[in-house]
Design a protein around this nucleic acid. Sequence first.
DNA 1: AATGTAATGTTATATCATAACGTTTTCAAA
DNA 2: TTTGAAAACGTTATGATATAACATTACATT
Lengths: 133, 133
Amino acid sequence: MSETKLTKNQSLVLAVLESHQSPLSAYSILDQLTDAGLRAPPQVYRALEKLIDYGLIHKLESINSYVACQHRHCGSHQVTSFAICDSCEHVSEIINAQFDKTLHELAENAGLTPKHSTVEIHGLCNACSGLEH
Amino acid sequence: MSETKLTKNQSLVLAVLESHQSPLSAYSILDQLTDAGLRAPPQVYRALEKLIDYGLIHKLESINSYVACQHRHCGSHQVTSFAICDSCEHVSEIINAQFDKTLHELAENAGLTPKHSTVEIHGLCNACSGLEH
DNA sequence: AATGTAATGTTATATCATAACGTTTTCAAA
DNA sequence: TTTGAAAACGTTATGATATAACATTACATT
């Protein structure tokens, strides 16, 4: 899987996300692509959907924003977890096989066969913690 | 904390959530309270915000919906995790101290001091898994 | 060239959420 | 018991996020 060639809009959207450290909203991506000819939300949302399918980007559900995947070939079905700084918006993507296993067990214990998990930890990163006193 | 007496709108909103098994959107709650005299979204959103502060309800970020807390006095600052069936919308609330610890460690390892975490596991519950094949 | 499929462009609208402002209620301190 | 500050409320408007629906274009395969 996943030697898929990206379409023009998909490439444009991915390039915008890859050029930012922080998560972006769909409309903010759209704003940055008006010069490239994009005019309407569906053009961005369609690209985002495919890129998520391909595992190239992730949606942060708790802040309705999107980030480029920080790993090569993050499989689309893997559990991905995020550490999000509420001050500077820095996002770290966490991959941890043991944690995946734990999550899976938790689901099974709750009577659920897991398909996809959202794990988003909010707080303050070390840099921002240091700035407050 | 938390022997707070609820206001009229807070009580109305909580009653609607408690009378449902499944998560509800804010607008769906509003629809069910028109007879009680509620007219506008802020009336519901303001109540939801307070109820979340009090730990009486939770927001499911991945589906923009709200559920009554399944535990007595879920502290507002605790980690709460959810197992959500994508077929029947059944939601189980998971509380597990060891898992909280694991999440906390994960955050620390990522250089983040955690304040609040969103954990929402999607999949199929046992009942719905049995129906398909 | 004809055809079928995926991608695109476009308009409109659905859905989720909050700003802003004026009024009413609550309730403890004077 | 008054009264004044804070909280809750009602209301209008609007902002922010996301998708339905349909016409058009691009392009690989025949």
